[in-house]
Write a protein that binds this DNA or RNA. Structure first.
Length: 432
RNA sequence: UCCACCGUAGCUCAAUGGUAGAGCGCCCGGCUGUUAACCGGGUGGUUGGGGGUUCGAGUCCCUCCGGUGGAGCCA
């Protein structure tokens, strides 16, 4: 008998097949019983009506506990009463294992603490199934975007000898007798080196921030996609970001809209996402926030509430550009017309989802970069190889980092990034 | 690190300082198409730990532990 996956079931209507999976739900009356099965690719129901010939099977089915692993055999039947339109008319069932005790996550309300403690089991639930499938499609679309445009994947290291941009907030560990090394907060400096070798480069991997942040937008370990392009300037950079985000959203709508609908996402909001995105300068943002009554002055960085207030003004992601240079990282290129601001931008997702991209044109002039490193009181010796890049054929270049979980969270309409990654690492939460 | 809130049955939550309860789950029975099935019966407690106030504490106070949300910082 042919083993088929639930996602392919429609192609097997009328045929006798085998499904290998788990019992998701069970309902039974005196004469008819339903088993809702899942197999990792989807959910479907199996049905059995009691007859003179199948009493033994019927009794086994109506007593099966949820999360029993089973191999179910039967005929695929199209039926409008079945969720999904197809069901399996059972004629045989092999139990691989029955749970040794009742599965803890049942059809009822659970608090987040309980669910997080049971994350290894929680991911079997329907909502998590759909979210993790969307995450998979988001990452697939990101890779596709770059690959179609001739970018080269450059995997940047997790262990780094020198600190990235800021000295605090890094995880420090012992590296044999070499001394201290740090877990990467960003691969940017390496991508800057790589773009001088390969032109257009990107990475996609985990990054680590030792920040004691406890908010719906923060993870300690999160996945970031970064891109860096030689000869790209500020405007080229923004255009690339708009195209990336629009591409990802359109691919999700194309391939994963059923998942989004299952978790209650309003697709109309995503269908509006196409370039160009609205743009405001930092100056305009500050004026707007002051009018809204925020106690913020020119030179201050924006917090989550400020970003949310701005994002709610637009239906698409909004680009905020040209921040004061002292509020941003040392390596950002000054605006030639206004040296007090830098050629950078953030991209703020709609509906209050916050910053999903941080971007800038990088300083390519050796002397200016040295001056900035000194101005920010950073140890010059840590940046020896980074400065080298400015000694040999330096060119303008630009890049950005996209937060994968925040993007997934926005696309899915989640209320916390912890559901956008299979096993979130959060403050004081490392299990499972 | 700081601020706020929370911790009671397996889970989600009630309980004016005065006999610890409900719904769901689970177990048993019933039900011929269920969609969070339904109906009947049963099961269920060191009220997070310690100390204190009080005739009496789930409730008030102190302290510790754990959790959630937020701030700062960022993707």
């Amino acid at each position: 008998m042919e083993w088929v996956y639930i996602e392919d079931i429609a192609r097997h209507a009328g045929k006798e097949v085998e499904i290998k999976g788990w019992v998701w739900r069970r309902r039974a009356s005196g004469r008819i019983a339903f088993l809702h099965l899942r197999d990792g690719t989807g959910f479907m129901q199996a049905v059995i009506e009691k007859t003179n010939d199948n009493e033994e099977l019927f009794e086994r089915v109506r007593k099966l506990d949820i999360e029993s692993s089973v191999v179910a055999r039967g005929t695929v039947r199209e039926d409008p009463r079945a969720p999904g339109g197809y069901e399996l008319v059972l004629n045989d069932l092999v139990v691989v294992q029955e749970p040794v005790e009742p599965f803890p996550i049942r059809k009822k309300d659970h608090g987040i603490d309980f669910l997080m403690d049971h994350r290894h089991l929680w991911i079997r639930s329907k909502r998590q199934f759909h979210i993790l499938r969307v995450r998979h499609e988001v990452i697939r679309a990101i890779r596709e975007f770059y690959n179609e445009r001739g970018f080269v994947l450059v995997d940047t290291p997790i262990f780094t000898g020198s600190v990235g941009e800021s000295a605090g907030n890094t995880f420090e560990l012992d590296y044999f007798d070499y001394g201290k090394v740090y877990l990467a907060q960003t691969g940017q400096l390496y991508l800057e080196a790589a773009c001088m070798a390969l032109g257009k480069v990107y990475n996609l991997g985990p990054t680590f921030r030792a920040e004691k942040s406890k908010t719906r937008r923060h993870l300690i370990e999160f996945w970031m996609n970064e891109a860096e392009v030689a000869y790209y300037e500020h405007e080229d950079n923004i255009r690339l970001q708009e195209e990336l985000v629009s591409f990802v959203v359109s691919k999700i709508l194309e391939r994963a809209s059923t998942h989004l609908l299952e978790i209650g996402r309003d697709l109309k909001k995503l269908e509006k996402i196409e370039p160009p995105f609205p743009r405001i300068t930092y100056d305009e943002a500050i004026d707007f926030l002051k009018k809204k009554g925020f106690g913020i002055d020119w030179g201050d960085d924006m917090g989550g509430d400020e970003e949310t207030a701005i994002s709610l003004e637009f239906e698409k992601p909004v680009i905020i550009e040209r921040y004061p240079r002292m509020a941003k990282a040392f390596y950002m290129q000054p605006d030639p017309d206004r040296p007090e601001v830098v050629l950078c931008n953030d991209m703020i997702a709609p509906e209050g989802y916050g910053e999903i991209i941080g971007a800038s044109q990088r300083i390519h002039d050796y002397d200016l970069l040295v001056e900035r490193i000194r101005e920010f009181n950073l140890p010059l010796e840590n940046y020896d190889w980074y400065l080298d890049l400015r000694k040999y054929g330096t060119v303008p270049h630009s890049g950005f980092g996209l937060g994968v979980e925040r993007t997934v969270s926005w696309i899915c309409g989640l209320d916390h990034v912890r559901e956008a990654i299979p096993f979130p690492r959060m403050l004081y939460r490392l299990k499972p």
